[in-house]
Design a protein around this nucleic acid. Structure first.
Length: 643
DNA sequence: TTAGGGTTAG
């Protein structure tokens, strides 16, 4: 009778504390202790709670092991991502003359998939054929997944074709194989094929497609949207995947809209939903939605959760709420390198270099080893704050103490650091000593510095190199053109304009976002689409008048426009950030801080304008551009006009 | 038994 009670309790997979209590009670009773079925139940429960090591202890105590007991152990390792241990256990089983069965193979194949170990995978396939199990559905599905993950798509397809009665997992495994290898079109063909064979795509199909739908074409995104919209009985996974697809294609607004739709439909978001949607909120500085999500996770017991907390830090940081980010960071139960890096970047982007460096050292003292990304963050923080000595120190530590091989982004940070500090010659020698060819970011950083410090000689070298690299960003062409213009090389200025046309470089239209009542409003330069347009332009005119009284002269120098001087002035006057700022002034109470997010860097004129507007209206204006935060207050910006 | 969804920089 006691056995029955324990069996029932263990089948419910109790929490780890209860589980350990039950375990110790079983150990104290010799009769229970010798009950093999109970031992297997214990193993299953520990494994489900992610404790493979304890599962192994229980396994070791069982005197007679049959194939089922081995299978539970192998499955425990495979499900908890201890793939090498799973393969090892499979070998032990074979060496002990216990014959694997149709339940063993899917698990060991999953381990081969996880490791991408084709060698063992092929051996296992051989064994499967010898045992005549290759027609088994579960074994076949495992083989498709294994070959797919190991990049052997032809073999995977052969196995799939041979499976007599395919189920949805068979097809999805094939979709996952193609998708994992970036072959969206082939994955798509399998989706069509499965429908042709009377099998409807499910949430697993969508999830399998995800790896190949990052940074993809709008057509591919639309295909997934169609699949999502047409799916019957959508579950949470499908919603999560759809949100992820939007986020991974820089469609943050659509992601947030879908999240709100999901709430309306009464679907309860889980930790994966939250960790997926928060980056979109951060991207839009949609801090009102972000805060509501924060409240939701707190109320629903989803915390502590590392990924969610890390995502919250980043969301607050990107929305310019440094204090909120720090609050989340401070109360975390445990922190990983990502938590620290997010917080370091947050300080860096706000120009608080000293805080960033201090936190970086604190992370090391906490026993964590900084990775390559952590160094990008701290180096970038140093460069934004002009901390030359600290930046050099960190770079040395990275290469010498941690033996991290610098990547192009580290080089670009260093050139930026030296360049901003006016050490143009040193920056140039640094580039000449680089072990790899400098990329456009490296030359771009040098060129920006040369422009600020009027170093024409090196500036022209940087411009020539940048020209040859065919930069994709139009911003570089503007920089190059400016330096040629300053040097009086008008022929080169014309060449640059022709190059831009030839290479099909289009100036990315500037966009500014501002959140109001849970909705993100987007403005383009000269935009007249907004319902409040008339009011915005009226108010802007009044404001520009006050600014001119305060000494404002439009700075037309930084812009590359094919227009006359007077037109330039009108063009500048309606830059997207100015429209967004005025919109916020009209629609919020006096004194409310204004938060703007830009997809490009703030131009010199808007920077001057924002400083003046902050003084005239008594508002704090926080602008996040692609590079950093500008916090305007009472006529001053936190970047110290150094950006 | 088998597939499949998450967080950090530039």
């Amino acid at each position: 009778m006691v056995e029955k009670l324990y069996t029932q309790l263990l089948d419910k997979i109790p929490d780890i504390k209860t589980l350990k209590k039950l375990h110790s009670k079983i150990l104290l009773d010799p009769k229970l202790c010798s009950n093999i079925a109970l031992g297997v139940k214990l193993m299953r429960a520990y494994s489900a709670r992610g404790h493979s090591i304890i599962t192994r202890h229980v396994f070791d105590k069982i005197p007679e092991r049959n194939v089922s007991i081995f299978n539970v152990m192998i499955r425990s390792y495979a499900n908890n991502k201890l793939y090498s241990d799973a393969i090892c256990m499979f070998r032990t089983m074979c060496e002990n003359d216990v014959k694997p069965d149709q339940y063993s193979f899917p698990c060991v194949l999953k381990a081969c998939s996880g490791l991408g170990n084709l060698r063992v995978g092929l051996q296992v396939h051989g064994l499967i054929i010898r045992m005549g199990l290759d027609m088994n559905l579960f074994v076949g599905n495992g083989l498709v997944a294994m070959y797919g993950k190991c990049g052997r798509l032809v073999e995977a397809r052969c196995v799939l074709d041979e499976i007599p009665r395919k189920d949805v997992v068979s097809w999805n495994s094939m979709v996952a194989g193609y998708s994992h290898n970036g072959m969206f079109d082939d994955a798509l063909e399998i989706c069509r094929n499965m429908e042709f064979n009377g099998m409807k795509p499910n949430d697993g199909t969508m999830a399998s497609l995800l790896p190949s739908v990052s940074n993809t074409t709008i057509e591919n995104v639309e295909f997934v949207i169609d699949m999502f919209r047409n799916m019957e009985g959508k579950d949470l996974v499908s919603w999560n995947v759809m949100i992820s697809v939007y986020v991974k294609n820089s469609m943050s607004n659509d992601a947030v809209k879908l999240y709100l739709e999901m709430e309306t439909c009464g679907i309860r978001p889980d930790v994966i939903t939250i960790a997926s949607i928060l980056p979109a909120c951060g991207d839009l500085s949609a801090v009102l939605v972000g805060k509501r999500i924060h409240y939701y996770v707190e109320r629903n017991g989803l915390l502590p959760n590392l990924s969610v907390e890390n995502a919250l830090i980043d969301m607050y940081a990107k929305s310019g709420c440094l204090d909120e980010a720090r609050k989340v960071f401070d109360v975390m139960h445990s922190r990983d390198v990502i938590s620290w890096t997010s917080m370091i970047s947050a300080y860096g982007a706000s120009g608080q270099g000293h805080n960033a460096v201090e936190l970086f050292h604190k992370m090391q003292r906490s026993g964590l080893v900084p990775d390559s990304i952590a160094f990008v963050s701290v180096l970038s923080a140093c460069s934004h704050a002009g901390l030359l000595k600290e930046g050099k120190f960190c770079y040395k530590m990275m290469t010498e103490k941690y033996e991290i091989v610098p990547r192009p982004e580290h080089f670009a940070c260093m050139v930026d650091l030296l360049g901003r500090a006016g050490q143009i010659d040193e920056a140039y020698s640094f580039i000449k000593k680089m072990p790899v060819a400098p990329n456009e970011r490296v030359w771009g950083a040098l060129l920006s510095a040369c422009r600020v410090y009027n170093n024409m000689d090196i500036g022209l070298v940087a411009a020539d190199n940048l020209c040859q690299l065919a930069p994709k960003q139009s911003g570089y062409y503007v920089l190059i053109s400016n330096i040629f213009a300053k040097a009086g090389r008008w022929k080169d200025v014309t060449t640059i304009r022709l190059l831009m046309k030839d290479r099909g470089v289009k100036k990315i239209p500037g966009i500014s976002n501002v959140e109001l009542n849970n909705q993100v409003h987007t403005f383009l330069a000269g935009d007249r689409l907004h319902p409040q347009s008339d009011k915005i332009y009226e108010e802007l005119e009044v404001l520009v008048g006050k600014m001119k009284d305060a000494g404002y002269v439009p700075e037309t120098d930084g812009a590359l426009h094919d227009v006359e001087e007077e037109d330039k002035e009108t063009h500048l006057a309606v830059h997207s950030e100015k429209l967004a700022i005025v919109f916020a002034i009209i629609n919020t109470e006096p004194g409310t801080p204004i938060r703007i997010t830009k997809n490009l860097r703030v131009c010199g004129d808007c920077h001057i304008a924002a400083k003046l507007i902050s003084k005239i209206t008594g508002r704090a204006i926080i602008v996040r551009d692609t590079n950093r935060f500008h916090h305007f207050q009472n006529g001053i910006c936190t970047c110290g006009d150094y950006w």
